[in-house]
Design a protein around this nucleic acid. Structure first.
Lengths: 131, 131
DNA sequence: CTTGACCCTGGAGTATGGTCCAGACCCATA
DNA sequence: TATGGGTCTGGACCATACTCCAGGGTCAAG
Protein backbone atom coordinates (compact mmCIF):
# COMPACT_ATOMS: atom_id res chain seq x y z
CA UNK A 1 0.00 0.00 0.00
CA UNK A 2 1.37 3.43 -0.95
CA UNK A 3 0.82 6.60 0.99
CA UNK A 4 -2.28 7.84 -0.85
CA UNK A 5 -4.13 4.59 -0.21
CA UNK A 6 -2.91 4.52 3.39
CA UNK A 7 -4.20 8.07 3.82
CA UNK A 8 -7.64 6.98 2.62
CA UNK A 9 -7.61 3.90 4.83
CA UNK A 10 -6.77 5.86 7.96
CA UNK A 11 -8.33 9.25 7.35
CA UNK A 12 -4.97 10.96 7.94
CA UNK A 13 -3.44 13.42 5.49
CA UNK A 14 -0.19 12.53 3.74
CA UNK A 15 1.52 15.36 5.61
CA UNK A 16 0.35 14.04 8.95
CA UNK A 17 1.49 10.53 8.02
CA UNK A 18 4.96 11.83 7.13
CA UNK A 19 5.00 13.84 10.34
CA UNK A 20 4.23 10.67 12.33
CA UNK A 21 6.92 8.75 10.47
CA UNK A 22 9.39 11.50 11.30
CA UNK A 23 8.47 11.14 14.97
CA UNK A 24 8.88 7.36 14.81
CA UNK A 25 5.18 6.69 15.42
CA UNK A 26 4.81 4.81 12.17
CA UNK A 27 7.57 2.74 10.59
CA UNK A 28 6.55 1.59 7.13
CA UNK A 29 9.09 -0.36 5.13
CA UNK A 30 10.66 1.13 2.01
CA UNK A 31 10.93 -0.27 -1.47
CA UNK A 32 14.49 -1.40 -2.26
CA UNK A 33 14.69 0.66 -5.41
CA UNK A 34 14.73 4.42 -5.41
CA UNK A 35 17.68 5.19 -3.16
CA UNK A 36 17.17 7.94 -0.58
CA UNK A 37 13.79 8.91 -2.03
CA UNK A 38 12.32 5.39 -2.12
CA UNK A 39 8.56 5.03 -1.74
CA UNK A 40 7.19 4.02 1.63
CA UNK A 41 5.06 0.90 1.77
CA UNK A 42 2.36 0.38 4.39
CA UNK A 43 0.57 -2.78 5.51
CA UNK A 44 -2.51 -3.65 7.59
CA UNK A 45 -0.56 -3.48 10.85
CA UNK A 46 0.32 0.11 10.02
CA UNK A 47 -3.39 0.82 9.59
CA UNK A 48 -4.11 -0.68 12.99
CA UNK A 49 -1.24 1.33 14.49
CA UNK A 50 -2.60 4.54 12.96
CA UNK A 51 -6.08 3.88 14.36
CA UNK A 52 -4.58 3.16 17.75
CA UNK A 53 -2.65 6.42 17.65
CA UNK A 54 -5.82 8.37 16.84
CA UNK A 55 -7.70 6.60 19.58
CA UNK A 56 -5.01 7.21 22.18
CA UNK A 57 -4.81 10.83 21.08
CA UNK A 58 -8.55 11.33 21.46
CA UNK A 59 -8.18 10.01 24.99
CA UNK A 60 -5.70 12.75 25.85
CA UNK A 61 -2.32 11.07 25.39
CA UNK A 62 0.49 13.09 23.79
CA UNK A 63 2.37 11.82 20.76
CA UNK A 64 5.43 11.56 23.00
CA UNK A 65 3.63 9.20 25.37
CA UNK A 66 2.15 7.19 22.52
CA UNK A 67 5.54 6.92 20.87
CA UNK A 68 7.23 5.81 24.08
CA UNK A 69 4.59 3.14 24.60
CA UNK A 70 4.84 1.86 21.04
CA UNK A 71 8.64 1.79 21.18
CA UNK A 72 8.57 -0.20 24.38
CA UNK A 73 6.01 -2.49 22.85
CA UNK A 74 8.22 -3.04 19.79
CA UNK A 75 11.28 -3.64 21.95
CA UNK A 76 9.46 -6.34 23.93
CA UNK A 77 8.09 -8.01 20.80
CA UNK A 78 10.42 -11.00 21.01
CA UNK A 79 9.50 -11.92 24.57
CA UNK A 80 5.80 -12.70 25.06
CA UNK A 81 6.18 -12.21 28.82
CA UNK A 82 7.55 -8.71 28.38
CA UNK A 83 4.91 -7.89 25.81
CA UNK A 84 2.15 -9.11 28.10
CA UNK A 85 3.56 -7.00 30.91
CA UNK A 86 3.57 -3.86 28.76
CA UNK A 87 0.02 -4.53 27.69
CA UNK A 88 -1.09 -4.90 31.27
CA UNK A 89 0.48 -1.53 32.06
CA UNK A 90 -1.35 0.03 29.15
CA UNK A 91 -4.61 -1.59 30.24
CA UNK A 92 -4.03 -0.20 33.72
CA UNK A 93 -3.65 3.32 32.35
CA UNK A 94 -6.82 2.99 30.33
CA UNK A 95 -8.67 1.74 33.39
CA UNK A 96 -7.61 4.93 35.17
CA UNK A 97 -8.96 6.93 32.29
CA UNK A 98 -12.16 4.90 32.46
CA UNK A 99 -12.49 5.72 36.16
CA UNK A 100 -12.07 9.41 35.39
CA UNK A 101 -14.82 9.30 32.79
CA UNK A 102 -17.09 7.46 35.18
CA UNK A 103 -16.42 9.99 37.93
CA UNK A 104 -17.23 12.86 35.61
CA UNK A 105 -20.39 11.09 34.50
CA UNK A 106 -21.45 10.44 38.11
CA UNK A 107 -20.93 14.12 38.88
CA UNK A 108 -22.93 15.31 35.89
CA UNK A 109 -25.75 12.83 36.46
CA UNK A 110 -26.03 13.88 40.11
CA UNK A 111 -26.07 17.52 39.10
CA UNK A 112 -28.73 16.85 36.48
CA UNK A 113 -30.84 15.08 39.12
CA UNK A 114 -30.34 18.03 41.38
CA UNK A 115 -31.46 20.49 38.72
CA UNK A 116 -34.49 18.47 37.68
CA UNK A 117 -35.62 17.78 41.23
CA UNK A 118 -35.73 21.51 42.00
CA UNK A 119 -32.83 21.69 44.43
CA UNK A 120 -33.79 19.68 47.50
CA UNK A 121 -30.26 19.40 48.88
CA UNK A 122 -26.81 20.85 48.33
CA UNK A 123 -25.38 21.20 44.82
CA UNK A 124 -23.04 18.29 44.04
CA UNK A 125 -19.34 19.14 44.06
CA UNK A 126 -16.74 17.67 41.74
CA UNK A 127 -14.42 17.33 44.72
CA UNK A 128 -16.49 14.43 45.94
CA UNK A 129 -15.78 12.43 42.81
CA UNK A 130 -12.48 13.53 41.37
CA UNK A 131 -9.54 13.88 43.72
CA UNK B 1 -9.67 33.56 48.01
CA UNK B 2 -6.76 35.29 46.23
CA UNK B 3 -4.81 33.80 43.37
CA UNK B 4 -2.02 32.18 45.40
CA UNK B 5 -4.49 30.24 47.53
CA UNK B 6 -6.52 29.35 44.43
CA UNK B 7 -3.36 28.07 42.78
CA UNK B 8 -2.70 25.80 45.77
CA UNK B 9 -6.30 24.60 45.84
CA UNK B 10 -6.32 23.66 42.17
CA UNK B 11 -2.72 22.71 41.44
CA UNK B 12 -2.55 25.25 38.62
CA UNK B 13 0.16 27.89 38.36
CA UNK B 14 -0.77 31.56 38.66
CA UNK B 15 0.27 32.03 35.05
CA UNK B 16 -2.02 29.25 33.89
CA UNK B 17 -4.89 30.67 35.95
CA UNK B 18 -4.42 34.10 34.35
CA UNK B 19 -4.20 32.44 30.95
CA UNK B 20 -7.52 30.68 31.58
CA UNK B 21 -9.12 33.93 32.77
CA UNK B 22 -7.92 35.62 29.59
CA UNK B 23 -9.58 32.86 27.57
CA UNK B 24 -12.81 33.24 29.55
CA UNK B 25 -12.55 29.79 31.10
CA UNK B 26 -12.56 31.17 34.62
CA UNK B 27 -14.43 34.32 35.63
CA UNK B 28 -13.51 35.28 39.19
CA UNK B 29 -15.01 38.48 40.57
CA UNK B 30 -12.82 41.49 41.25
CA UNK B 31 -12.51 43.58 44.35
CA UNK B 32 -14.14 46.99 43.92
CA UNK B 33 -11.07 48.93 44.93
CA UNK B 34 -7.90 48.97 42.87
CA UNK B 35 -9.17 50.21 39.52
CA UNK B 36 -7.82 48.39 36.48
CA UNK B 37 -5.33 46.39 38.55
CA UNK B 38 -7.87 45.19 41.13
CA UNK B 39 -7.22 41.81 42.74
CA UNK B 40 -9.17 38.81 41.49
CA UNK B 41 -11.20 36.90 44.04
CA UNK B 42 -12.02 33.20 43.65
CA UNK B 43 -14.64 31.05 45.36
CA UNK B 44 -15.40 27.34 45.72
CA UNK B 45 -17.31 27.23 42.44
CA UNK B 46 -14.18 28.47 40.68
CA UNK B 47 -12.28 25.58 42.26
CA UNK B 48 -14.88 23.13 40.94
CA UNK B 49 -14.73 24.79 37.52
CA UNK B 50 -10.93 24.50 37.46
CA UNK B 51 -11.07 20.80 38.36
CA UNK B 52 -13.67 20.23 35.66
CA UNK B 53 -11.43 21.98 33.12
CA UNK B 54 -8.50 19.75 34.05
CA UNK B 55 -10.66 16.65 33.89
CA UNK B 56 -12.10 17.54 30.50
CA UNK B 57 -8.62 18.37 29.26
CA UNK B 58 -7.26 15.01 30.38
CA UNK B 59 -10.06 13.44 28.36
CA UNK B 60 -8.83 15.13 25.20
CA UNK B 61 -11.05 18.19 24.93
CA UNK B 62 -9.46 21.46 23.75
CA UNK B 63 -9.77 24.64 25.77
CA UNK B 64 -11.88 26.04 22.96
CA UNK B 65 -14.41 23.20 23.29
CA UNK B 66 -14.40 23.43 27.08
CA UNK B 67 -14.90 27.17 26.91
CA UNK B 68 -17.79 26.86 24.45
CA UNK B 69 -19.49 24.31 26.69
CA UNK B 70 -19.05 26.41 29.82
CA UNK B 71 -20.31 29.54 28.08
CA UNK B 72 -23.40 27.74 26.88
CA UNK B 73 -23.87 26.38 30.35
CA UNK B 74 -23.64 29.87 31.85
CA UNK B 75 -26.03 31.28 29.25
CA UNK B 76 -28.61 28.63 30.11
CA UNK B 77 -28.23 29.17 33.86
CA UNK B 78 -31.53 31.00 34.25
CA UNK B 79 -33.63 28.29 32.62
CA UNK B 80 -33.41 24.92 34.35
CA UNK B 81 -34.79 23.21 31.25
CA UNK B 82 -32.04 24.63 29.04
CA UNK B 83 -29.41 23.80 31.65
CA UNK B 84 -30.65 20.23 31.89
CA UNK B 85 -30.55 19.93 28.12
CA UNK B 86 -26.96 21.16 27.95
CA UNK B 87 -25.96 18.74 30.66
CA UNK B 88 -27.55 15.85 28.82
CA UNK B 89 -25.53 16.79 25.73
CA UNK B 90 -22.36 16.83 27.80
CA UNK B 91 -23.26 13.49 29.35
CA UNK B 92 -23.81 12.10 25.86
CA UNK B 93 -20.34 13.22 24.77
CA UNK B 94 -18.77 11.65 27.82
CA UNK B 95 -20.64 8.42 27.15
CA UNK B 96 -19.10 8.37 23.67
CA UNK B 97 -15.69 8.80 25.25
CA UNK B 98 -16.53 6.02 27.65
CA UNK B 99 -17.40 3.74 24.73
CA UNK B 100 -14.07 4.56 23.09
CA UNK B 101 -12.17 3.65 26.24
CA UNK B 102 -14.12 0.43 26.54
CA UNK B 103 -13.42 -0.47 22.92
CA UNK B 104 -9.72 0.12 23.40
CA UNK B 105 -9.79 -1.97 26.55
CA UNK B 106 -11.63 -4.81 24.80
CA UNK B 107 -9.03 -4.76 22.04
CA UNK B 108 -6.09 -4.81 24.43
CA UNK B 109 -7.61 -7.52 26.62
CA UNK B 110 -8.28 -9.70 23.59
CA UNK B 111 -4.74 -9.17 22.35
CA UNK B 112 -3.34 -9.98 25.79
CA UNK B 113 -5.35 -13.21 25.81
CA UNK B 114 -4.04 -13.99 22.37
CA UNK B 115 -0.44 -13.46 23.44
CA UNK B 116 -0.77 -15.48 26.64
CA UNK B 117 -2.60 -18.35 24.96
CA UNK B 118 0.22 -18.82 22.46
CA UNK B 119 -1.55 -17.68 19.29
CA UNK B 120 -4.34 -20.16 18.60
CA UNK B 121 -6.21 -17.91 16.16
CA UNK B 122 -5.76 -14.67 14.29
CA UNK B 123 -4.35 -11.61 16.00
CA UNK B 124 -7.17 -9.27 17.07
CA UNK B 125 -7.58 -6.16 14.94
CA UNK B 126 -8.56 -2.75 16.23
CA UNK B 127 -10.91 -2.41 13.26
CA UNK B 128 -13.25 -4.87 14.92
CA UNK B 129 -13.69 -2.59 17.90
CA UNK B 130 -13.12 0.98 16.83
CA UNK B 131 -14.75 2.13 13.65
C1' DC C 1 4.16 57.09 54.66
C1' DT C 2 7.34 53.53 53.94
C1' DT C 3 8.35 48.76 53.56
C1' DG C 4 7.60 44.20 51.90
C1' DA C 5 4.77 40.64 50.34
C1' DC C 6 1.63 39.89 47.03
C1' DC C 7 -0.93 41.05 42.67
C1' DC C 8 -1.75 42.95 37.69
C1' DT C 9 -0.82 43.74 32.61
C1' DG C 10 1.40 43.14 28.33
C1' DG C 11 4.49 41.00 25.58
C1' DA C 12 8.02 37.74 24.29
C1' DG C 13 9.38 32.91 24.20
C1' DT C 14 8.66 27.64 24.07
C1' DA C 15 6.82 22.94 22.97
C1' DT C 16 3.51 20.33 20.57
C1' DG C 17 1.01 18.91 16.63
C1' DG C 18 0.32 19.72 12.67
C1' DT C 19 -0.10 22.20 7.52
C1' DC C 20 1.71 24.05 3.27
C1' DC C 21 4.64 24.44 -0.15
C1' DA C 22 8.88 24.23 -3.74
C1' DG C 23 11.87 21.61 -6.00
C1' DA C 24 13.38 17.21 -7.03
C1' DC C 25 12.71 12.17 -7.64
C1' DC C 26 10.07 7.63 -9.05
C1' DC C 27 7.91 4.90 -12.36
C1' DA C 28 4.24 2.87 -15.41
C1' DT C 29 2.63 3.82 -19.85
C1' DA C 30 2.85 5.36 -24.64
C1' DT D 1 12.69 8.39 -23.82
C1' DA D 2 9.26 11.51 -22.87
C1' DT D 3 5.37 12.61 -20.10
C1' DG D 4 2.35 12.82 -16.29
C1' DG D 5 0.64 11.37 -11.96
C1' DG D 6 2.25 10.11 -7.70
C1' DT D 7 6.00 10.48 -4.01
C1' DC D 8 10.11 12.39 -1.31
C1' DT D 9 12.79 15.94 1.44
C1' DG D 10 13.49 20.13 3.82
C1' DG D 11 11.98 24.15 5.57
C1' DA D 12 8.72 27.85 6.51
C1' DC D 13 4.45 28.74 8.73
C1' DC D 14 0.36 28.22 11.95
C1' DA D 15 -2.70 27.39 16.22
C1' DT D 16 -2.85 25.82 20.83
C1' DA D 17 -1.49 25.87 25.50
C1' DC D 18 1.23 27.34 28.24
C1' DT D 19 5.66 29.84 30.65
C1' DC D 20 8.55 33.60 31.87
C1' DC D 21 9.59 37.97 32.65
C1' DA D 22 9.66 43.47 33.33
C1' DG D 23 7.58 47.17 34.99
C1' DG D 24 4.29 48.77 37.82
C1' DG D 25 0.08 48.71 41.16
C1' DT D 26 -2.19 47.07 45.90
C1' DC D 27 -2.43 46.81 50.66
C1' DA D 28 -1.74 45.48 55.56
C1' DA D 29 1.54 46.26 59.22
C1' DG D 30 4.61 49.20 61.60
Amino acid sequence: MLISEFAKATGLTQDTIRFYIGKGLLKPRRSEKGGSNAYQIFNEDDVTAARMIRLQQSLGYTLREISALNDEYRKGMRSPKRTAQIMRTQIGKLEEKQAQVENALAFLRDKLQWIEAGKPGDTPRLNDYYC
